[in-house]
């Protein structure tokens, strides 16, 4: 569905995206995570043809990025959702439906359906009076007026209250279930974890890690063991009348077992800890 090869973007002397390649299959949800300034937004904008790449190739749905035919099959949600303040959600959405050549009846049907699903009732009031969550919903509805196959969402839930965030994330999941191909960026990992099939972690314009969440955890995550003993050994900390030592290999566990035996005690408990996605993220991005 989407194929990106050695994508690069330079602004003057600054390299924002530095040789990124990835493929997204039909119906897949692909997440881009990374700290601010990692190059996520630039990558997404090149994907929709908003920004011309300095080098590399992008095909979406078999078209070059930026091709008018490609744009018809794509819905984009930018990070900020400023609208024209004086327009109402209905008039705004109808205008865009018109630009995408959607006939009036279908457009109305889609607009009402999307606004219903997003739970937006104020449909004939100027959007200038709207809260951030309400404008976001209108912007999301706009990305759907052409019933696109591919959705590119830049931080769809950033800066929203928890309730609206839930609605938006839930809605994105429903879209994925509908079979849409979604490329999605976020710096909040919970959103990525709950929606994405595969993720890429970006750092300094490059992919520091890609794959399914499990893959990434396997590759970059670490397992550690907390060994509880009933006697004090080297490096142990007292804990609830017992002593605990944290190590990261089974050999170390054996060494503690031997040391405890020497001291006349023994190992009473061992617990395994896997790193969370946050840990992996912090580790990979070097934060």
């Amino acid at each position: 569905m989407i194929s990106v090869q050695r994508l690069e973007k330079r602004y003057g002397g600054v390299t924002a995206v530095d040789g990124v390649s990835f493929d997204v299959g039909a119906g897949e949800v692909f997440g881009l995570v990374g700290p601010n300034g990692a190059g996520k937004t630039s990558t997404l904008k090149m994907l929709c043809g908003l920004v011309e790449p300095s080098a590399g190739d992008i095909t979406v749905n078999g078209f070059d990025a930026g091709d008018t035919a490609m744009r018809r099959t794509l819905g984009f949600l930018p990070e900020e959702s400023p609208l024209y303040d004086e327009m109402t959600p209905r008039s705004y959405l109808r205008f865009f439906a018109d630009l995408y050549d959607v006939d009036r009846a279908t457009a109305n049907e889609r607009i009402e359906a999307a606004l219903d699903r997003l739970d937006l009732d104020a449909r004939d009031r100027p959007v200038g009076d709207f809260s951030k969550g309400m404008t976001r919903k209108v912007a999301i509805a706009r990305s759907l007026v052409n019933d696109p196959d591919v959705l590119v969402y830049d931080e769809p839930a950033s800066g929203l209250d928890p309730l609206t965030t839930n609605t938006v994330i839930e809605f994105t999941r429903e879209l994925a279930a509908d079979g849409k191909t979604i490329v999605f960026s976020a710096h909040d990992l919970h959103h990525v974890e709950s929606v994405c099939d595969r993720v890429a972690i970006m750092r300094d314009g490059q992919f520091a890690a890609t794959g399914t969440l499990a893959d990434i955890r396997d590759e970059h995550g670490e397992v550690s063991y907390r060994v509880f003993t009933d006697v004090d050994v080297d490096d142990a900390r007292p804990s609830n009348g017992r002593y605990v030592t944290t190590v990261d290999s089974m050999a170390d566990v054996d060494a503690i077992r031997a040391a405890a035996a020497d001291a006349g005690g023994g190992v009473v408990d061992i617990r395994t800890d896997e790193s969370t996605l946050e840990d992996v993220f912090l580790d990979v991005t070097g934060a």
């Binding site: 929709c48 908003l50 008018t68 609208l83 630009l99 995408y100």
Partner: peptide, 15 residues
């Protein structure tokens, strides 16, 4: 150009 209002229009299938 204020607050990137025109951005969605740039993604629409118009030149």
């Amino acid at each position: 150009r204020i607050d990137r209002r025109g951005e969605p229009l740039l993604v629409a299938p118009v030149s």
